[in-house]
Amino acid sequence: MSGDHTDATIARRVRRLETLLEEKGLVTGEKVDEVIDAFLAESSPANGARVVARAWTDEAFKSRLLRDGTAAVRELGYMDGSYQRLRVVENTATTHNVIVCTLCSCYPLRLLGPSPSWYKSEAYRSRVVREPRAVLAEFGVELPPGTQVTVWDSSAESRYMVLPRRPEGTAGMSEEELAGLVTRNALIGTAVV
């Protein structure tokens, strides 16, 4: 954890870097602002939740999503211009999927928003490939014995997103209501809906 002192020091250094780069004509403050705004505007877990709700209510969309995630989410206006490939992995009665990046912090940013701190932590990255059931239990997820667990370690330019199981008793719900049930952790696989 950074103390206030460390934070003030690095904040000063980042400002100095930005000033230097402006002087050299490499960046402008406005350009950096734009980039940050775009980063935040394009990236939200509400996007992933909407994709899941559509898959739960539209079988044809779901099969397209599982076959070619990138093309399917582009139908809904997501991941335009991204060079990355989206692979959606489906949880079923007998299988559970969970996502990690052990080497750094690769994550489907556009569909899930900026990642939570725990996703980037050494504790999560080191353990989930080795003992996923113990890790899932720490998140409060208890899987029935016999469930096949698959851990997807994103080591290249594919980004993984979990398609959670649709909960019982939601038959009458609208797509929007269903999207409201889907949490960020459910899209990573550290929660169920």
Partner: peptide, 22 residues
């Protein structure tokens, strides 16, 4: 690039999960 599936047992000597790497 290939998605490659490994058995936990082959990686760690124990476990019943799979790990997929790109």
């Amino acid at each position: 690039i290939y998605a490659v599936r490994f058995e936990a047992r082959d990686l760690w000597g124990e476990g019943d999960h799979h790990v997929v790497l790109d």
